[in-house]
């Protein structure tokens, strides 16, 4: 057994052919997941039971089960349900890509909504009161005081979740998608060289993680100018 560097050199370009799909899955579900998370978070803090109870149940289920199970339920399970096959959703769910996006979105939405809620609850109550005492309306208080501060507070945890979402995209290789992970598995099954291929892929993922962390660190520093003494 020896380490085949030539194989690494030839396989990295092959792996990178899947990076486009990884990015699509990652960014699309990050954006859709964030929208879902905002909606869930607003439901959660609404104070109305018919809104926060469903949101809580949703979050509980999606955080309490493995994402791989969620992917399989959506990919293998849902096509079995008749009304889904007849609905507009079918055009999305027929394709593994659509299933992947849906599963990742639903999953990350649950986690991010809790992060955002933590941010909102972390804003000192006195600030809202001060704004209220000035006669600023409830909606405006949320937009101009609570939200900007909550975003700053949630950013570190959110960046972790974005990275964790990137890692989760690798799971779509289990439903036939050829993202970087899917390509790597095919190359390994052809070459029997798991070390070379998987370690190359690890390095690619580490670069993505590192870059994401740097971008968020920059963003945090920009947003927290007001706390620098």
């Amino acid at each position: 057994m020896n380490f085949d560097f030539a194989l690494i050199m030839t396989s990295i370009p092959q792996l990178l052919e899947g990076i486009g799909l990884t990015f699509q899955l990652w960014f699309l579900s990050a954006i859709l997941g964030l929208l879902l998370a905002i909606a869930l978070m607003l439901m959660r803090i609404s104070g109305k039971w018919f809104l926060y109870v469903p949101a809580m149940v949703y979050i509980y289920i999606f955080r309490g089960t493995p994402i791989l199970v969620q992917i399989f339920i959506i990919y293998y399970g849902l096509p079995q349900v008749e009304f889904i096959r007849e609905s507009f959703m079918w055009s999305i769910l027929r394709e593994p890509f659509g299933c992947g996006i849906l599963a990742l979105t639903l999953n990350t939405g649950a986690y991010v909504s809790e992060i955002l809620r933590g941010g909102v609850l972390g804003v000192p109550k006195g600030l809202g009161e001060a704004a209220a005492a000035l006669g600023i309306s409830k909606v405006q208080r949320f937009i101009y005081i609570t939200a900007p501060l909550a975003i700053r507070l949630s950013l570190p945890a959110y960046s972790n979740d974005v990275i964790s979402l990137m890692k989760s995209t690798a799971l779509v290789s289990t439903i036939t998608l050829l993202d970087m992970m899917g390509i790597a598995r095919i190359i390994v099954s052809e070459t029997y060289a798991p070390y070379e291929i998987f370690i190359s892929l690890m390095i690619i993922y580490l670069i993505l993680t590192w870059t994401t962390q740097k971008i968020f660190a920059l963003l945090e520093r920009r947003m927290n100018r007001h706390t620098i003494q």
């Binding site: 001060a130 209220a132 005492a133």
Partner: peptide, 22 residues
Amino acid sequence: IDAVRREVGMVFQNFNLFPHLT
């Protein structure tokens, strides 16, 4: 109530200035 609050200014023990605004 917001209209009444505009007529009444309040100063708090902990200042409660908005930290993200100059």
